[in-house]
Amino acid sequence: MSTTYIFPQLSSLFVTSMSVISFTILAVYGFLELREKHLHYSKFWNSGSKTFAVKEIKLSSRTGMLITYTPAFLAAVASFVIYPQEDIRMLLLSSALTIHFLKRILEVLFVHKYSGGMILDSAVIISLSYGVCTASVTYAQSLTKGLPEPSIDLKYLGCLLFILGISGNFYHHCLLSRMRRLQGDKEYKIPKGGLFGIIICPHYLFEIIGFVGLALISQTLYGFSFTTGSALYLIARSYVTRRWYVSKFEDFPKNVKALIPYVL
């Protein structure tokens, strides 16, 4: 039944192992978010944690985020050279990954306004995660060459979801940025506009939609494993974000959910 939606199980120990490892790591980080053991960036900088050790190196948020996204972007670009692009699915996947991380880098440089910093350790951890996952998903895709296609072709639906996800994510990132007219403005406010009136993390919702699009373009076990793990992490992150806003703002609207309108 699985071959209806995904390529036949690959005989690669590396891909199978990475599918399990990627899902597990992302799910664990989601669980740690719920336990208030956060990666140190954004509004959760130093939240719920004790004083940092002197040896930890603090970066500006912009520098930390560039470290986070640049290796994955380079891995996505490299996939055009490393793997033959005769296969349309591989071309679409490499293109989507490149666009995804290029968008993130451009947002870091020209859209986001920052209020805190980022610990070097957190930047390296996230950077390795994105870089390894990007390299793994393209490698897994390259191994499907010559295998029977899934019975139901989802790659074009995946493209539509990817475009919807990346567009909605960008739009809500712009709304967040406009809340801070000046680069030095460090005051947090309750976001407004777009879907912020019904959920506090629409940018995470659209990010999940974009990841689902990538999984449907790929239609490999690794693609679905990474997407599921990422969704679990972002669900936890959105829940903790809502909890943070409720604790900081007495007038936070009770009807505004974390991630899924009217539900969660």
Rank of each mutant, 00 (worst) to 15 (best):
G48A: 04
D153S: 13
H172W: 07
L120G: 06
V28T: 05
V81D: 03
K248W: 05
T138K: 05
V263D: 11
L10M: 11
M179W: 01
V263I: 14
I166V: 14
T144P: 06
V256R: 15
L10R: 10
Y233D: 01
E187Y: 00
V124W: 09
S42G: 13
S230C: 04
G146A: 01
R62V: 02
T24L: 05
Y233M: 04
E149K: 13
L10T: 13
L195Y: 10
K43F: 00
S177E: 12
V212L: 15
Y114T: 12
I25H: 10
E36L: 02
F52N: 12
F110E: 05
F252Q: 14
C133T: 06
L176F: 06
L91N: 02
S95F: 12
F73H: 07
R178H: 11
A135N: 00
Q85G: 00
L109W: 13
V124M: 13
V124S: 07
S2W: 15
M18T: 06
L66T: 03
S218P: 04
H203Q: 12
Y245H: 06
I25C: 06
N169I: 10
A72G: 04
M118W: 03
V20Y: 03
F14T: 14
L106F: 14
Q85R: 07
L264R: 11
F211D: 05
L264Q: 09
A76I: 11
F101P: 11
I105V: 14
G48Y: 01
F80T: 04
V15L: 05
S12G: 10
L154E: 13
G168N: 13
P261L: 08
G116R: 07
S127I: 03
S61E: 15
L221G: 07
V263E: 13
V81Q: 04
K155S: 02
P84A: 14
T16R: 10
K257Q: 08
S129W: 03
V111A: 10
I6S: 07
L154T: 10
C133Y: 09
Y239G: 04
I99M: 13
A258K: 03
V240G: 00
L147W: 03
L176G: 02
L92Y: 15
G146W: 06
